[in-house]
Write a protein that binds this DNA or RNA. Structure first.
Lengths: 210, 210, 210, 210
DNA sequence: GATGAATGAGCTTTCATTCAT
DNA sequence: GATGAATGAAAGCTCATTCAT
């Protein structure tokens, strides 16, 4: 659970700065070489400190990727935050938010790191749990949005709601793989088809799609 | 780089059989343990030959996974093959094929290996090329289907077509990540929302979606 | 329990020879540097093989010292074997056997290795168990000798017998420490006092010692 | 080699107090974890000062154990001190003192540390010298006792005296090893046989032992 | 063709020690 | 005097790869 080494530091600001150095360096290394391919030696060199010293801030290499994931979780939630802030109707809000979402998924570095973590999750229970926890929270936030007063599909069965949410998430996270498999693909090309699909998923199915 | 050892074999048929033994064994090991988790010792035991002997057929461990990807390309995108075989109308065909597609994406070991390959593509040019080539072929096959006579959207701009195809692919491949992030998710829950979304993507957008 | 790596070897004679090489080298290193002070690199160099290769014969560094102990146990039993082989009366037999026993305890290398193992036993449960098992077997062998027909103290209480055996063992094993603390001490000087003490411990106490 | 750091201290009394803090803490740690098992971090925490600061008082970790041995010498062999203080006859005095001696030798932590030092002596000349010097002093003290007027064996050859002293020491120090090899052994069981053996060693051999 | 013994570079991690503050 | 951040040289161990047979 606790990704931090239990060592006490006299200057917490310095310690936090050092932790950030390590996380930044490690993210970069993992992205380029993968979790298993990146060695502590390389990470330490890039972080500008000795390998041994890293262990004053992180208990293990595994603790480093866990911290990276936890950092990433907060960022993910900001995506959903904007839906609540918008006073407009939900479909419009979500569609306008989509632009940013697509751009992020198609970013090479962001995507590589996400894929690396997902692949690691298949073999590493701890990593899997962190990612699943994060995903569950994101789905719950989404459920709140979709069942709020202004939602047009607020009176759905739980199961249908679950299906819709997961397909929406699938749609977005699948873009990660598009980037890997078709790097030249442009955001606006995607949006041509993504917006109608999303609209379908945010409105009652019967409505006009017979 | 080259996935085959350049060694000449006196009995090419035997050599090919041996290569198959190795690929079969390695696929199984990689699926269960991951690329990094599976060792040559384990692969060689399962392939029924010595570890050293494998190097008469493959230049390296990396060459093995490259060969697996190459072999696996057809299967990987065979989901779309069946669309051509069906004489019915396209939407129906695709929806009926969806069942199998979803099931496969939700299989744990299959998904883990796919993710591992995709993550590897982010840092291994050879792997990336193989996967991209495979994806390109699949998209072209899809394009043929969607522009065939029986398609309802055969008169689209290339760009819109490209967008639709990529979003459809996104939708399916995103399920890989759903499996990793939400293992309890059931196929039928997904289908509730997946089918309407797919229908939207296979019909003209104006038609009934305001 | 099993001190051997589970790896199968096609030529057991070669494997056994390699194991011996390692055990000989490791004994020497442990003697000179101690268990913690001797590194696998040094052992492997002295054994004439790579460090990695040692792990084909022993599962860990700990397994090596365990094997050394187990080898030493057999040797220890040969000391007691001679008591049974002698047709003479017990006191004479044991006294004559004492010469060898003293000589061995005073041997520098033998003693250093024994001490190293005993010190390790204080922190390492596995090592402690092996040594204790060995000691228990030795005490039981001794008990058989002392309660055999020709023994003059065969009708003792168990407790007194236990006391005598342990004091005899103490007397001999204490010589290990004499060697460390007083290296110039000669065997014949020891024997002057050791033999009468031993005689006391092998005869009824009342007999003439009032 | 030199157990003290050569650093000059402005307040020698404070420096000495700090040295004692370190030695007390280190003794405790070594006793519980062994020389190799105890780290400077742990010692420094227990000593109430920073790890780095210890190096103002001791040149190295090794210097600490050397100082401990030097400090501990008197206590280590104080068993024999009491013989001089007793006004009674020697055999009685020694036998009564035996109780304490046995108890101490059978104490687990005390014994573990003694063994560790003795093992260390086999490879560390400085440690060996300190221990040998201490042992020599103890043997000389013993020699004085055994050649005092009240001793029954005061007219012995030097060689026989040396033999007797060393066997007596062997007998006691061998108990250290008994504790390691047979932890359940009780003090009273030992004493049953230890006392007669000791008596033999403190009286002329001819007297009643035929 | 086939083996598996053997290598050696690499891994993560630990810890005695140094030194700027 | 005193700190603890920082170092760096090990440590034990793994494993893809090579090669004599």
């Amino acid at each position: 659970m606790s990704e931090k080494s239990s060592k006490r530091h006299i200057d917490p600001a310095l310690a936090e700065a050092r932790r950030e150095q390590v996380l930044t360096a490690a993210s970069d290394c993992f992205r380029r070489k993968g979790y298993h391919g990146a060695g502590m030696a390389e990470i330490s060199k890039m972080a500008g400190m000795s390998a041994g010293h890293i262990y004053n801030y992180f208990a293990s290499k595994e603790a480093i990727i866990e911290a990276i994931i936890e950092n990433g979780m907060e960022e993910m939630f900001s995506t959903f935050q904007q839906f609540e802030d918008h006073p407009e109707d939900l479909v419009t809000a979500m569609l306008s938010g989509t632009d940013n979402g697509v751009a992020r998924k198609l970013d090479k570095d962001y995507g590589a790191m996400q894929l690396e973590m997902l692949a690691e999750a298949a073999r590493n229970q701890k990593v899997a749990c962190l990612l699943q926890r994060s995903d569950t929270q994101a789905r719950e936030k989404m459920r709140e949005v979709l069942t709020s007063e202004r939602s047009l599909i607020k009176d759905m069965t739980d199961k249908e709601l679950d299906g819709r949410i997961n397909v929406i998430f699938s749609l977005f996270s699948g873009l990660l793989l598009r980037r890997a498999l078709y790097p030249e693909l442009q955001k606006d090309t995607i949006l041509i088809a993504l917006k109608p699909a999303l609209k379908t998923l945010l409105l009652p199915f019967e409505q006009g799609c017979g």
